[in-house]
Nucleic acid binder design. Structure first.
Lengths: 341, 341
DNA sequence: TTATAGGATGGTAGCGATACCAAGAGAACG
DNA sequence: CGTTCTCTTGGTATCGCTACCATCCTATAA
């Protein structure tokens, strides 16, 4: 009673069966299915008829082995449970599907070692391309990528030296721009709440951007204005409360994660703190929610969908024959000024 | 310059190479990797050394073809862009990974024809199991599943007659329970806002549940109290406003989608309508957001994570040898009474 | 000691498709 | 009318691994 027994529900029609029943050679069946234009009308009709009659499903595993070509792309995200990745995944999935590719998804849980294990596993499955939502990798990952030569897209941040291709925005620039924006609006005591920094280059970059902007604004860099919080609504609220308590003069808070920002906003509503009267709130990433909350929340719009789309397009082009070259695309970002600041 | 050329970054070490370098037969390598206990300590060490030296990655495509066994499970969801599926996907992904399986994800965009095309495609990839977030299928899907005999999990709703295995809650019962709950709280004019009904048995079931509850409560079934809205915050707000305008006596609104409910809540905040003073709001699905919004929102807690986990567990058990049997698991739901009602 | 079982290895034959080359059938040409 | 060229079609040899069976070796029993 192996898995095998289960898979064969008694059918398992193969190409040679179709060929026999259609009165043609297996090669003709193969061609009729993959490149109909190379086969005469008559043959194609015979094959199509037999395929329909038996409900034949070509075995892509065999096809891939034989052609040394696969149509599955691997994607590794830190967490599936995050709507921010969802937009990107959707876009990738759509572009791939339109080009006959499939998507294998795995999540690394923000752990670099797990990323390496997953890259290995996906490569063993012989994926034809890889999308990594991460730009710092273990040596193992770099070696594997180099050795196998699979096309790789890195995203989530703009690496100085991409493994292969990168499509992203700069977390550093985005955080800097938002902080500068707050400064321009007249805020002088700006708190910063970051997601965990460990194993996460994105968070680290954002924090650097925040400090860079403070410097440019001529504001003091006060480390006690920076709080690290795990994701979640409550954590955002808690962080804001702590900041306000330790810094009575705080006039704005920049949250490097949209859920944190919304959590903070709710906390303000609960406590009756006017936003932005008592404290201004700025967020990172344009969650739909932020446009509808009361007040609406100032944030950075990151073109997540575009990132996904362009990543998949680059990958597909390469798989379809484009010559390999290091590409680094900066999709940029946009500050969306709303009521909360 | 085929894709092939790209894939061979110059390496492509195969099992026989490892065997040669380790001074053993290919079969021993195969066994050392897949069932180390069937190989002597000495052999295993030789093999491991060679594997590490060359950075050998077994070719699972070849393995699958040869063994007629695959370790990839296919998942089809209506849309990836929905945090509600995200919880389930995460759970599935985790369980599968812990058992050495991988996940191929596709989205049907709520179109049954697309679902069929995807089932075909995934079956052609020879996935060893299928999870469908949908319980009404085309004949084509039913035939394919029957013919190939792949284990299938249906979820998203409790089908009367599952294709194979089903893990879900009852949309009908859930909607009925919430409507009854509102009735018990004393609300008498309860609006209902549903997601699009077309090709979506879940929405349809929820609506039936709403009407069933009204009947039990002895309340009139007024079709004009039911509004169909595409998903989205704005649509939720719009729907509520329309309901209130056409039914001045409306005292509660039940939204069959969490985003709609939150949109309505924001609209109330904007208009200064007290919730639940002016109108009570109830939601479907326990988005984290609802627990933190102001006011917190009464809703139905659907154990999405558990659904994913149990689905994957059932699948894995079957793949590991459990005998096939129709299984239908009702994971239930829970009413979470909060401030909004 | 010889017989016998059982565990560890190796050899061989596929898995179901595709690549590549050879062969046959017409069409176009001088 | 034969030759060359192009378009279709078919045969054969893999692709890289695993199933299955044969073989061998060592340990235990008789």
């Amino acid at each position: 009673m192996s898995r095998k027994a289960k898979r064969n529900g008694g059918d398992d029609i193969k190409m040679s069966d179709i060929a026999r029943h259609a009165g043609v050679s297996p090669m003709t069946v193969s061609r009729a299915l993959r490149a109909p234009s190379t086969v005469s009308e008559k043959m194609r009709r015979k094959v199509d008829a037999a395929v329909r009659e038996f409900g034949y499903l070509p075995n892509r595993i065999a096809g891939s082995l034989s052609s040394k070509r696969s149509n599955v792309v691997g994607l590794i995200v830190p967490s599936i449970q995050n709507s921010l990745y969802a937009n990107m995944i959707q876009a990738i999935s759509d572009v791939l599907r339109a080009n006959g590719f499939h998507l294998m998804i795995a999540n690394s849980g923000h752990r670099l070692d797990d990323e390496e294990a997953l890259v290995s596993a996906l490569l063993a499955q012989r994926v034809c391309g890889l999308v990594l939502h991460n730009t710092t990798h273990t040596k193992g990952v770099r070696d594997l990528v180099a050795k196998t030569g699979v096309p790789v897209i890195e995203t989530g941040n703009l690496p100085a030296e991409p493994l292969d291709m990168a499509v992203s925005y700069s977390n550093f620039e985005a955080a800097r721009a938002m902080t500068a924006h707050l400064g321009r609006l007249g805020y002088r005591k700006i708190g910063f709440v970051t997601l965990p920094l460990r194993d996460n280059d994105r968070s680290e970059e954002r924090r650097r951007g925040y400090f860079a902007a403070l410097k440019e604004l001529g504001l003091p860099a006060d480390p006690s204005l920076v709080l690290e919080a795990p994701g979640g609504f409550s954590e955002g609220g808690d962080a804001l409360v702590r900041l306000v308590q330790t810094h009575p003069g705080l006039d704005a808070a920049f949250f490097a994660g949209d859920v944190l920002a919304v959590g903070a906003l709710f906390e303000c509503q609960r406590r009756g703190w006017a936003v932005p009267g008592r404290v201004a709130i700025a967020s990172f990433d344009d969650l739909d929610l932020l446009r509808h909350a009361v007040p609406t929340v100032t944030t950075l719009r990151i073109p997540r969908h575009e990132i996904g789309r362009r990543s998949a397009e680059l990958l597909v082009n390469r798989l379809l024959g484009a010559s390999p070259e290091r590409i680094r695309i900066d999709v940029g970002f946009e500050i969306v000024q709303r009521e909360s600041t």
